[in-house]
């Protein structure tokens, strides 16, 4: 049985941006993108795309990547397509510039209804910028679907999904009818690299772009319920005491003595 999957992906500031290059405009309460460090697709969302592609490869069907934002970098956002997704839908509207998780979920849910004919919604477990992990659960509420978080594998059996949920000390296996919302964790395994052919195919595809009015929504539907009072880089007070020796081994010995002196061992 073919399975149609919508994967929600988010463009984020590269989480590998060195702390020294990470800047905040405190006045505007915004992160200033580090020059020369392009944004990336959120890592967990790539894990979700990977699981979606594995399911499609096994069962047939269609994978649609869906994203919401204001400043899309097209080379970045086409990554799900170059990995093998069939379609890309971008929600772009100036009213999204200060959107919170609630509004994001409302807009994405409207887009999912508009895309229609879906069996499964996949999302990364959380986005590496704000780590909220709540838009997927909001989608489940707004669409009236069951939800399972932090999946490491998904199988389709008859009319049900079998989902292994990664836990700190093992995993749980859940069963749910679909459609359902499932969030994917890095335990799902490395996302595939785009092939040259995949990149070529992606470059020829034009994303479908919808604004707020295409979704049948007005600004009040996505109005923020949270407000940001402050955004700043914390100052660390810690001073590292470097232990030196005649050579590396000697430094190792001296470190042990230092920890003993400080009654830490």
């Amino acid at each position: 049985m073919p399975i149609n999957i919508i994967v929600c992906v988010k463009q984020v500031v590269d989480p590998e941006t060195p702390a020294s290059a990470f800047k905040v405009d405190r006045e505007a309460k915004r992160v200033v993108p580090a020059s020369g460090v392009p944004p990336v697709v959120n890592g967990f969302d790539e894990n979700a795309v990977e699981l979606a592609l594995r399911l499609r490869d096994a069962h047939g069907g269609k994978v649609t990547a869906l994203s919401l934002g204001t400043d899309f970098v097209m080379d970045v956002m086409k990554k799900p397509l170059s990995m093998g997704a069939d379609d890309l839908v971008l929600l772009r509207d100036s009213s999204f510039s200060n959107i919170d998780s609630f509004g994001t979920a409302v807009a994405l849910a409207a887009a999912i209804r508009k895309i229609g004919n879906y069996d499964l919604i996949l999302c990364g477990r959380q986005a590496s910028d704000w780590d909220n992990a709540q838009v997927p659960l909001g989608l489940a509420e707004l669409l009236g679907l069951p939800s399972i978080t932090t999946a490491k594998s998904i199988q389709v059996r008859d009319k049900t999904l079998i989902v292994e949920r990664a836990l700190p000390d093992g995993y749980d296996v859940f069963e749910t009818p679909f459609p359902a919302v499932v969030t994917v964790s890095n335990e799902a395994g490395q996302p595939r690299y785009p092939t040259l052919r995949g990149i070529m195919m992606a470059s020829r595809k034009t994303p479908i772009t919808w604004g707020l009015s295409d979704l049948g929504l007005d600004a009040s539907a996505i109005a923020s319920k949270l407000s940001l009072l402050d955004l700043f880089i914390p100052v660390t007070q810690k001073q590292c005491e470097f232990i030196e020796g005649e050579n590396d081994a000697d430094a190792g010995r001296k470190l042990a003595l230092k920890l003993r002196e400080a009654k830490l061992i």
């Binding site: 660390t236 810690k238 590396d248 430094a251 010995r253 470190l255």
Partner: peptide, 21 residues
């Protein structure tokens, strides 16, 4: 930046001596 004590060196050499001590 987060550490109280640090050794800048090759762990291959630092760790065995540290462990032994």
């Amino acid at each position: 930046k987060e550490a109280r004590y640090g050794v800048v060196g090759d762990w291959n050499k630092v760790l065995p001596a540290f462990t032994e001590a």
